[in-house]
Design a protein around this nucleic acid. Sequence first.
DNA 1: GCATGAAATTTCATGCTTGAAATAACTCGC
DNA 2: GCGAGTTATTTCAAGCATGAAATTTCATGC
Lengths: 155, 155
Amino acid sequence: MSACATASADAARARLRLWIRMLRLTRAIESELRENLRTEFSATLPRFDVMAALYRFPRGMILSELSRYLMVSNGNVTGIVNRLVSDGLVERTRRGGDRRTTVVRLSEHGTASFESMARAHESWVNGIFANLTPGEAETLAARLRQTSLYPRVAP
Amino acid sequence: MSACATASADAARARLRLWIRMLRLTRAIESELRENLRTEFSATLPRFDVMAALYRFPRGMILSELSRYLMVSNGNVTGIVNRLVSDGLVERTRRGGDRRTTVVRLSEHGTASFESMARAHESWVNGIFANLTPGEAETLAARLRQTSLYPRVAP
DNA sequence: GCATGAAATTTCATGCTTGAAATAACTCGC
DNA sequence: GCGAGTTATTTCAAGCATGAAATTTCATGC
């Protein structure tokens, strides 16, 4: 075993440790946020995610844009949107030239509901990361963005 | 709106941005790893996670330790373990004084199978984070650990 | 001894998630 | 026109995930 091979094995292990920490922390935070959404808004994380995407694109998105943006499967989005529609939070409109596509957007009620959740959500996250200064948070975020798999959204 | 309130609103937004980046990156990496596990080993991420935990504790774990460690619900662990047992990768032993508990551990076959997956898994992660030096990876990991919700495992 | 409560696990209903197959609509070459 | 391939969406089976309820076993006080 050469010194070089050992060093690269150590490097691999350091990167694996980073990944495991990141995964565990992400899961812990997701659990906390899911719990908060459930108890305070009777909502779920997937529903919140869909609504957040639609809030960001107020002119509406077609389902495949939504699924690409959220990095989940098409069939998954269909189900979540169906439930949001039957709760009156999201509207489907099948207009436009291409009759394959469905445009979905937040209803008025859905917009108000999301804004209320988003305020709470921001303050939960702010509390969770309270021991990072804004500068540290930005540095960290910049580092994460350098990772090869970081998802770039098509504009 | 005072300058102070504006600054703290900016701080909250920086922390929120960090969280969103971290979540998106984690999901992208999870997708990649899930896909690799599926195509190369016909395995899933939850199964890999359970096997990794059992590999780390070769003397076995009871189900509630496993669910605490993986941060998933009890009923969830029951299902995943059941499937692993019926595939011969995990063994249940209902020995010991306390007849409420079930001890689960990797079978010989499960151990070999996990070791093979773990080697591949480490090299995938190593590739994903290739543009971070080991030092940068360690610094990042240390920062993540400072976050309030980072899960500390009971020894 | 025995009641009362706590702990470990399972079961259940519901919802999320995937990948694959099926359907329908569009595009493009010819 | 029209056939071949592509794209958008839905449907489906299987597995994952949760929280709550039910079951069994243990521990403790009395």
